[in-house]
Design a protein around this nucleic acid. Sequence first.
DNA 1: GTTCCGCATGAATCGATAG
DNA 2: ACTATCGATTCATGCGGAA
Lengths: 297, 297
Amino acid sequence: MHYLNKILLGDCEEVLKGIPENSVDLIVTSPPYADQRQQTYGGICPTKYVAWFLPKVDQFYRVLKPTGTFVLNIKERVVSGERHTYVIELILEMRRRGWLWTEEFMWHKKNSYPGKWPNRFRDNWERLLQFNKQKKFQMHQEEVMVPVGTWAKHRLVNLSDTDKIRDESRVGSGFGKNVSNWVGRRKVYPNNVIHMATESSNQNHSAVFPVALPTWFIKLFTSPGDTVLDPFMGSGSTAIAALKLGRNYIGVDINKQYVDLANQRINNSQTRLPGVGERGKRYPVKGQKEGVHSETY
Amino acid sequence: MHYLNKILLGDCEEVLKGIPENSVDLIVTSPPYADQRQQTYGGICPTKYVAWFLPKVDQFYRVLKPTGTFVLNIKERVVSGERHTYVIELILEMRRRGWLWTEEFMWHKKNSYPGKWPNRFRDNWERLLQFNKQKKFQMHQEEVMVPVGTWAKHRLVNLSDTDKIRDESRVGSGFGKNVSNWVGRRKVYPNNVIHMATESSNQNHSAVFPVALPTWFIKLFTSPGDTVLDPFMGSGSTAIAALKLGRNYIGVDINKQYVDLANQRINNSQTRLPGVGERGKRYPVKGQKEGVHSETY
DNA sequence: GTTCCGCATGAATCGATAG
DNA sequence: ACTATCGATTCATGCGGAA
């Protein structure tokens, strides 16, 4: 198990060949989108995106357990006035290679990039595509239940988000001041729309992939002790979420600076808190909101 | 202009042949989804859905003006555990026939159908696909602006009405809990996520296409006096919205009962109010919410 | 102890300008 | 004609410090 709880430097297409088949319970990742992140990843031309991605996806298929799940965060960019088709072409190609397109979750990004254009509005959502190898897969719906709508609305709306977070981190139980009232509240199952802001304004790292997002899917699709893979690790949000929830992680990134940054963030997320790094325990992570998927938005 | 402001009985594929080309400014419709609404529309097998839809779409293309827009509300159903691919295949086919896939709006249905399944959550969103014939099309962004986020969220919610009035009268200097900022509440452009509840009322129509939805797109993509087409009219939401906004409508439905129901709803929406039926005037419609696309979020 | 204000910061897109 | 770069546009959010 030499590859567990480490971040491996290299192209995931090659690195993953060193990982046994059927050894991963969940893959959750946010690959570089076409023509984005040119400085760090070089940028992939939209017309070549599917061809670039498919061999990597074949490796994902190999390492994923039959009961495992692959969650892909992606969004097509605008090319000469049109939404490009590489994402939907990718879905069709992946199905030809054996993947089941089980579901498409909607990530409603509350803070999208600003701007104004004559013929379109700001883009406020991204796709979270769920793929599986079988119709039967591991899923724990009760782990992600949310407080019922009306109550959360009234209690939380009149607190600023700043205050919510501040109180949460102060208390240390994971439940802030008013949030402690959630205990014993009626909970309901969530739906396939996920309301969550990006972590853009964090100074040190600009993780567009907020920790709360992998957290949600890890709770939903794995058990403690399971293994979570992120083949495009970036600043390490998936690893932080996995550790916090007592899961093993495998991280891969082709960029050394990101690997270093992710390792640093992982260390910080552990040493910042008492009882460092023991598996199976839950610690609140600064900036991590509970109930982000609830009706408060 | 014998075809304006009427609902035509028949298959839109045939009926539209009687309408001149380049005569419609906006097409907004919610066709029967595959295998849904079998009693009323007969149900279309998912594998044949694209072939069933394409000849109709060719007619839409013909009657639409070059600067016009086609808004298609659709969502793929689940077939043997997977999201079916007929929607994304339809997008690819339509592009081959000349349509531009300009944008995909997200309709977040706040009150979705309840239910629980072992391997998926409730489906709370649908696609609103925007297609155009040209990169340049008619669009009036300022017609659908919404109050700025912080305004509705914090300030308004947690103050009682008396507080608001008191502070407002006290202002003068411009500092009464910053209520002065709300006066002439700043408006911002919306984004491509549309938050709107389905029409809960018990119309006999099974498709819940709220009037507010076509209203939003009619404001955005047409001018007063323009013509709006809904080739799957159903219970007539699009016609009601068009009339209220002083636009002409063309409705088509293959089912006589729906044509009758829609005509009845259209009449009600007019006769219920004073100053019946004159074009160009705006009347509030019962149950119609303003600002549904804004931010309680 | 709680609310409020100011500020920096983005997985963006279009159109113009330059080679 | 086709690509590469650049500036203008714009707003929800977290954070720090003040009222």
